[in-house]
Design a protein around this nucleic acid. Structure first.
Lengths: 178, 178
DNA sequence: ATCAAGTATCTTGATATCAAGCTATTTGAG
DNA sequence: CTCAAATAGCTTGATATCAAGATACTTGAT
């Protein structure tokens, strides 16, 4: 199959080449002409980009011996501000994971000395998770590296388009998190 | 905290309210004024939207008793066109998973009668994975439901903005998949 | 004062995933 | 023709995740 032909046949003449999603949409149109598959142009790209981003994050954190999910927990505590403490329940809400998952994450981070648990004063059901000094050091340097890596990925787009993109994504996101 | 105040203080006066990412960026700016955290405006939204999309996909597939990863495999076979066959290696390349993962996925789909394996003619190392009739029926109806659900999510944006968004995402994606 | 309902966290069992390595087969250099 | 390297798919062991439910405590209605 010659992709140059396909490029010629697109309605708007973008100078850019096809990406994987363009090929997927084309295949669906060939196979199921009866379906309106254009939503894939936006949402499949969101999924695929998130997947690549996840892999990039993984490599940015590797130097700090951190998994992506470990960073997520530490950074939530870090940006909460001094004294860098949150309950497991608050962490669960921010990360869209189950409580069992969070128990496991905190267990592991505690074993590595990056966070500590303490009883919550006045509510004996409750626990407070806090950053250790080591934890804060690690998350601060990992965050700097993550931002460097993210800036590289965004280098494709000039400032104006970045803002546009952020605004369009916000509008899709708002129904989920008002 | 009163979010109405925050809305007033944003530099550009968008009529929309804050989303979770705006709050995260604000928190980082408060805690680490020295870091340039604006990349999060795009990339954290991509991650979060992908997560929500994943959950939405899950509920769209539930009626068909399909997991998201099962649909991914079936749909790759479906859009390959008749006779709906691909090698495990081709499936691995399309989905960014390891070969062990794919073996497991195909095993499970085979047990459910949605795909079948057969030896590849002329190469005795090789295997060909193909859709069964049942598999094709299931993926066709699941795809229709998925697109319905995706259209709902995109209802926020008029056609013009959808195209814009797709084009901006393509530019970020191209370096990964030329 | 009592107790049902709600809340906060943890436990258990199942499973999808990955990294690393294994086996069988094909390819290509000499 | 021979054999090292490449390729294709599978196996194994470890782990992060989830769903469901257990445990312990708090709140609120009566």
């Amino acid at each position: 199959m010659d992709t140059r032909l396909a490029t010629m046949s697109t309605p708007e003449d973008e100078q850019d080449e096809q990406d994987e999603v363009d090929r997927i949409v084309e295949a669906w149109q060939r196979e199921r002409g009866d379906l309106e598959v254009t939503p894939l142009h936006v949402l499949s790209r969101v999924s695929r980009l998130a997947r690549h981003l996840d892999l990039a994050r993984g490599s940015a954190f590797a130097q700090h011996r951190l998994e992506g999910w470990e960073f997520d927990v530490l950074s939530a505590l870090r940006r909460a501000g001094a004294p860098y403490e949150l309950s497991p329940g608050q962490l669960v809400k921010q990360m869209l994971v189950t409580s069992g998952t969070m128990t496991n994450r905190v267990d592991r981070l505690e074993r590595r000395g990056l966070v500590h648990r303490k009883p919550r004063p006045g509510d004996r059901r409750g626990v407070i998770v806090g950053l250790t000094q080591e934890g804060r050091k690690v998350v601060d340097s990992a965050m700097a590296d993550l931002l460097d890596r993210e800036r590289e990925l965004l280098a494709e787009l000039p400032e104006r388009e970045r803002r546009q993109l952020a605004e369009l994504l916000r509008r899709l996101l708002l129904p989920f998190e008002p």
